[in-house]
């Protein structure tokens, strides 16, 4: 709906860059800060209630969206018939806005994370603790990356409407620096770290896949069947052999013994239901915990 609907100006949605919009933004922000300040004066027993009401209101949105009657076959540019439909329309319109809220709030909190990182490393540098020189290195690379990253973004976003900088021939020193740090170093390190998993798979399989107990034996057996089915050459020899057998005996039943068929059978008949059983439990666990958080039943921990 959001994508189809034409922009409609209302009290809430206003012309970009208009003074009214800016006034409203600033007033909203200041009011928000005011409420925040008021909270600092809240008595201890009110705290739990404040946190609970924020949590409850947020959860209520999706619960309403779930249980409220849906306005059937709504067409863009029409008015609701009654109040119930009015709420349904409102809920429908609000979904794309609410969907972003959690991500935006997490993004605001990133500052806290970075502060933690900086505290750990400044302390190390100040105390000249072991490895403090590496902490300096970390700080320097952080600052360099931020510098190159933002200048590059500003140049590409605002100073280069024709997209010239997309081509390497037009690059300035900032683009080279950003590319070297991001593409040359950072991304390659990510790939290196990711690929290290292969080494660990090897050593973990060597150690754990032993015929020690029934559990480790079945674990090994089903993993081996799957791995053998991944080896194209083996699959090819096996399949050709079975095809020849089928051609000789005219018994298509033998087709079922192709390694890919066997692996497929293990997956669909044993893997799918066992994983599904876990998923059912996990899904219920998430619902139950969601309910406890939403209704403020969890003592301590997150709820106030």
């Amino acid at each position: 709906m959001e994508l189809l609907a034409q922009a409609r100006l209302t009290f809430f949605g206003m012309t970009p860059n208009s003074p009214e919009l800016w006034v409203k933004i600033i007033v909203t922000f200041i009011l928000g800060l005011g409420v925040m300040f008021a909270f600092t004066k809240a008595p201890i027993r009110a705290r739990r209630m404040i946190v609970f009401s924020f949590t409850f209101a947020s959860g209520l949105f999706y619960i309403l969206l779930w249980l409220w009657p849906v306005a059937v076959a709504r067409e863009p540019g029409t008015l609701p018939n009654n109040a119930v439909e009015g709420v349904a329309f409102w809920l429908d319109d609000a979904v794309p806005r609410i969907a972003d809220v959690a991500q935006i709030l997490t993004a605001f909190l990133l500052g806290l994370g970075i502060m933690s990182l900086l505290t750990v490393h400044t302390q190390r540098i100040r105390r000249k603790a072991q490895d403090w020189k590496y902490s300096v290195l970390l700080m320097v690379s952080l600052v360099t990356m931020v510098g190159f990253g933002y200048v590059d973004w500003i140049q590409k976003k605002f100073q280069d409407p024709q997209g010239k900088l997309l081509e390497m021939a037009n690059w300035g020193p900032v683009q080279y620096g950003q590319d070297l740090l991001f593409d040359g170093a950072y991304q390659q390190m990510e790939a290196a770290m990711f690929s290290m998993i292969a080494f660990f798979i090897l050593s973990a399989a060597y150690r754990a896949f032993r015929v020690r107990s029934v559990e480790s034996t079945v674990l090994m057996a089903s993993a081996l069947i799957l791995m053998l089915s991944l080896m194209g050459a083996l699959d090819f020899i096996w399949t050709t052999g079975i095809n020849n057998l089928v051609a000789q005996t005219h018994n298509p039943f033998l087709d079922n013994f192709k390694i890919s068929e066997v692996a497929g059978w293990v997956k669909s008949t044993l893997q799918t239901p066992s994983i599904r059983a876990i998923e059912f439990g996990v899904g219920l666990g998430a619902v139950a915990m969601g309910l406890r958080i939403w209704l403020g039943l969890e003592r301590g921990g997150v709820s106030a």
Partner: peptide
């Protein structure tokens, strides 16, 4: 893959 299976 052969190495992995061999090791096991």
């Amino acid at each position: 893959l052969s190495l992995l299976i061999f090791a096991v």
